[in-house]
Design a protein around this nucleic acid. Structure first.
Lengths: 81, 81
DNA sequence: TTTCATTTGTACGTATGTATT
DNA sequence: TAATACATACGTACAAATGAA
């Protein structure tokens, strides 16, 4: 997945799945290092032109994968590996 | 948890957590047997006076517990054993 | 210490898509 | 055709906790 890809609302893959792929690629590229915080849900909403619901779904996918972890009222971080 | 309890919107426990407890108790009581379908999200919305979001959250809790499983476009069922 | 903005968590409403009955 | 059912996506709103000023 291209870490610089944009959301394609006409694609067959859901926007949240596309965003999950993009964020996964950005972590792999090193945009955010292990232990570091990623953009807030609001920031992702602004940057990708999607709803917060979609941003949260994408983050959830990566949290379930074990790539990220969320700290309530703080943010979402890249898990140390 | 009382399987016949109603949602208390003034309680400290979130509505979705209360509903999860109620549904868990209803499964335990045998309202729905293993392999059988439980009420749809829309039915739960009507029966408990909550939003679909809340119904889905409650179901998700029980799915993660392994008590239920969902089949897209079909319904949510009680897992065998 | 108090105030304030930020961030996640929750709740609700509406709409559309897809598949089944 | 029509109704049912879940999945996704958009929006709004408020609560609670954190951290900075």
């Amino acid at each position: 997945m291209d870490p610089d890809a944009k959301i394609d609302f006409e694609a067959s893959l859901y926007p949240y799945q596309q965003l999950a792929g993009i964020l996964r690629a950005r972590v792999a590229r090193g945009d955010w290092k292990p232990g570091k915080i990623i953009p807030s849900e609001s920031r992702l909403v602004q940057e990708y032109g999607i709803s917060r619901d979609t941003a949260r779904r994408a983050i959830r996918v990566l949290v379930e994968e074990g790539l990220l972890f969320t700290v309530p009222q703080r943010g979402t971080f890249v898990r140390e590996r």
